[in-house]
Nucleic acid binder design. Structure first.
Lengths: 357, 357
DNA sequence: TTGTAAGCGTTATCAC
DNA sequence: GTGATAACGCTTACAA
């Protein structure tokens, strides 16, 4: 069938040679030439649900394959004004503590035909520089898992670009967000510790700038006050293992005794705290001291720790982010929505918990 | 100075209104209009090192800022044939076990003016689908931290797109790669264990498809044979904690006794193995049994584990990837290079090691 | 230094 | 169903 006067194989070889010669890319024109159709016909073949005859489609696809043709996303996005790209602006802290977030976001957006342009922030001061890059790339939407200043939030609004905050509170600003209710989680943990008879609390706090640390701290402080217990001794940490180690020592030094319970701002610090308590101070946990964390990371579940903690439903949250952002991209703005997910208590072996109140 | 007959503020407000009205983006033409210069002048102002007068530059920048103008990366890449985008094709396994890889790659490429387009693979069978997306996006280069078939490798070559394999061996194919020498690392560990008198070995292996697991297994087997020791009992694992737990039990059941040393295919399995040995079987590690891992992940260093393992220099490796790929993008192909990084022994508390041989 | 004009590789509109 | 043709927003000779 293919053996007409000018065998396609010859034509295609010539075309390829010409293309390589001119050092240019394979375009839809080349495919059109090879298939003997117009360029617009080729374009239609790559648009799902366009009207093309079966015969044309077959010839075009064959030619495309022969030439290794792939539509140019840049050119496409220029005319369609859709890049099918989502920027993910994420602080390194998040990636390191919840590695599943990036893979899950990638999977979720992938299922919806979108790709992730990654903006990983070593320190959150780079946000401005990062944002100018985000604007350049004409992304269809942005997931922000980093702190934004009010000015930066305003710029998102001004540019009318769909965006969703991930686990960041911006209560004052009315923006789309997927968040885990840190404050309620903290309150819950305090209640259950108090119900088990703990009276003297200490807390290893997260870093100063972190809104998550802020809410957890606030929840702890508020609930303790409500119950009528003393405010906890606060020592500062940086969400890392070493902070847990040092925090534990600092607490004992500053108090002069071992408190009943230490609430740590995250699991990694709780693990550090626990290691110091057990291995260095030879304390029995949870008999002499209860230690709790936040997050529900994988190592917290390992036998050596079996940490009592609060698990954030990361899987649900990443799914929600993808759903919300794609909805925004499709339907335009439709009123800010703030989806709140509850954390669940993981009743491990490092704290004595009473019944939920 | 600005109060001429038509105040710029008025003009800019009008322009903005018009743009919003026509529902289009702010373009360099708009900026040109606002600044009273030609469009190409605007373009030049955004090209570092172009020849523009100071006065023009200032006016253009002012207008750009007033209008919230940012160059359109898609349009730029269309003409320059450079997207400043690097695709990172990475298996979820990698992201989950070495979360620092993505943030480091992002940082390294960011320093070199490039952004990461993320292709995270839930299962490595999706590679083909993924690659067609990679081609569409006109990336300048690709980092591959996933398994590629020979056909897929060939397609990279055919399309002449710079790429670097990350911690994947493709010895047969002559490609650019940054790898940690798993085999040599395994040999080193066996030597040091043997030097301490261990005779009966077992190994918890990684998953079947993994080239890293393959090399580690091979190194262990080869070195044991060289020394004249029996081949290790091999049990299979999936690089996760549960595999370590079960692997330990399976080893004891199948052998009928506790071996001298268990080499685990990675740290997470070693930690699982260790937890079973200590907590469930009440074995003294390393007195009765030595357990070692591979990788050097953060939890391996925590007090409760202090795992004896082999650390991969991930930081150096990610830096090397960025360097190599950017060099390839700049200078075109220049002979395949395979950069090999040695792992270092972390002499922890879970194995008795003899001197390096 | 600045402006004019020709692409880059698509999709979209509109006749046929 | 198919083919001209006009955008999309930019960079880059080339001319002034």
């Amino acid at each position: 069938m293919n053996n007409t006067l000018t065998p396609p194989s010859r034509t295609i070889a010539d075309l390829k040679a010409a293309i390589r010669n001119e050092a240019r890319r394979v375009t839809s024109y080349d495919v059109a030439t090879a298939a003997g159709v117009s360029q617009s016909a080729v374009s239609r073949c790559f648009k799902p649900g366009a009207s093309v005859s079966k015969a044309t489609f077959a010839r075009v696809m064959q030619a495309a394959q022969d030439l290794d043709y792939t539509p140019n996303a840049a050119a496409r996005s220029l005319i369609t004004r859709r890049s099918n790209l989502v920027a993910v602006v994420i602080s390194n802290q998040v990636t390191l503590h919840y590695p599943e977030v990036l893979s899950e976001l990638s999977r979720q957006f992938g299922m919806r035909g979108m790709r992730i342009l990654l903006f990983s922030l070593a320190n959150e001061a780079d946000v401005d520089q990062t944002l100018t890059e985000v604007w350049q790339h004409q992304v269809d939407g942005v997931v922000v898992a980093a702190r934004l200043s009010p000015v930066q939030l305003a710029e998102f609004e001004r540019r009318q670009i769909p965006f969703v905050l991930f686990n960041r509170s911006a209560r004052e600003h009315n923006v789309n967000a997927i968040v885990c209710d840190q404050q309620e989680a903290a309150r819950l943990m305090v209640s259950r510790l108090a119900a088990a008879g703990h009276k003297r609390f200490a807390m290893i706090d997260g870093p100063a700038g972190s809104s998550i640390a802020h809410e957890r701290r606030r929840g702890v402080a508020e609930r303790l006050a409500e119950i009528g217990l003393d405010a906890p001794l606060m020592v500062s940490g940086a969400f890392d293992y070493a902070s847990g180690l040092h925090g534990m020592r600092e607490i004992v030094v500053r108090l002069g005794y071992v408190p009943d319970a230490i609430i740590c701002g995250n699991d990694v610090m709780a693990i550090g705290c626990l290691d110091t308590a057990r291995h260095e101070m030879k304390l029995n946990v949870p008999e002499q001291l209860s230690i709790t964390g936040f997050d529900g990371i994988a190592p917290a579940g390992w036998l050596s720790y079996n940490l009592t903690t609060l698990r954030q439903p990361m899987q649900h949250m990443t799914t929600a982010v993808a759903e919300m952002l794609t909805a925004l991209i499709r339907d335009g703005s439709r009123g800010a929505e703030r989806k709140l997910f509850p954390a669940t208590v993981v009743d491990g072996a490092t704290a004595r918990l009473g019944p939920a109140g």
